[in-house]
Write a protein that binds this DNA or RNA. Structure first.
Lengths: 209, 209
DNA sequence: TAATTAACGTACCAGATAGTTAGTTACGTT
DNA sequence: AACGTAACTAACTATCTGGTACGTTAATTA
């Protein structure tokens, strides 16, 4: 794939390596990904991977960092302060729902990283302890709902985040074994709207009980 | 590790290979697992793996089949027909909660299999389409609850199974990245009882709305 | 008890794979 | 325009890894 005579551009080369490596790692896992395969899919050579990233593991860490940065950027835009608590909560849940559905590679990287017991995230100063901006928004919605007397009190924001994440991550991360065993594709359009509503109902029925 | 002069027992040898391989695959993933490493942890030799299983992939498939068989066996024992629908549903959810917590290797194998898009389950005649016995129990509880007028109607049993699985699987499968980012161990005793109750409340508040 | 076979062990190999050595070239600086 | 350095390439290697060739021994059977 490597083309001679191309202009030199460190940023572009780095970015291309990250992009190709993201697909490869998300596709095959850390151990299953092949450095040679990543190189073959780039317009530069394998040596450049080692030039910029040093080794396979560091490349993987930077792939993870890049993926998490993308998510954070989207969450930053969330603005539900103008909605009443119930609508705000539903919208937050649906944003997570939509986001995870449209970023399966990110979900796969997270699954892969959990197989490795998050050892790479732990080693990354950028990622470890990186707060989720959506969590502050969630806490604020819960406070407003409780003050308005519509939400139950004593609810931990992180627990609600966990419930929403669990549902949205499961749909994507476990869709293959789920389909193989139950013969239902959780991502088919037939179920998408039902699941989206189910998630919102689940969270709101709990909070407003 | 291989000991000379041991008695010959095909079943025992096969069982030991499956047992050691289960740990290795669950620990390192399919590509990360090493046949030599599995052999080193056995009381027999690598040759026996190929003698009984042919190749690494077939060994992995039989590890998966064995793991799923264990789960099925536990679910078979479920008997909640004597409980009222709400209690029955809560008990079913808590059984899944407890089960997944005490079988992390199974959850890891499922995650790993999803990274591989369930291609091995698909290839296994034993596993593909293997119905979950708990699903029939769940459908029966929903019917009884609806007939008694306490549960909402139009609820798909598989959707409820999905919600329960999502919550219980997430706690185990994603605990490492969750802890790295939010500094909370979902498996710590501090949260265990809260989460167990949260799951039951979540499902029942939804069904009884 | 001799023959047969299933169960097992030792030693090895070919290809794959992460990482490296040694150099070359574009490009901004002065 | 010459110089220094960052960006880049091609070819190579040490090691790892799934898999195998070949021989041996315990148990079963006739």
């Amino acid at each position: 794939m490597a083309q001679p005579d191309r202009t030199r551009d460190a940023e572009r080369t780095r970015a291309e390596i990250i992009q190709v490596a993201t697909r490869e790692f998300a596709d095959k896992g850390y151990a299953g990904a092949r450095v040679d395969e990543i190189a073959a899919k780039m317009s530069t050579t394998k040596r450049m991977i080692y030039y910029y990233f040093g080794n396979k593991e560091q490349l993987y860490v930077e792939v993870l960092e890049h993926a998490y940065a993308g998510i954070r950027a989207i969450e930053q835009e969330l603005d539900v302060e103008h909605l009443d608590p119930a609508d705000a909560m539903r919208q937050l849940a649906e944003l997570t729902f939509d986001h995870h559905e449209s970023h399966p590679d990110f979900i796969r990287l997270v699954s892969i990283e959990n197989i490795h017991r998050a050892e790479h995230i732990g080693r990354s100063t950028v990622l470890s302890g990186l707060a989720n901006p959506a969590l502050d928004v969630l806490a604020r919605i819960l406070d407003r709902g409780r003050e308005a007397g519509v939400f139950r009190s004593g609810v931990d924001p992180l627990d609600i985040h966990m419930v929403i994440s669990a549902f949205c991550v499961f749909r994507i991360a476990n869709r293959h074994t789920f389909k193989a065993i139950f013969k239902r594709d959780m991502l088919s359009p037939d179920h998408r709207e039902d699941h989206r509503r189910l998630l919102g109902d689940l969270v709101l029925d709990y909070l407003t009980r």
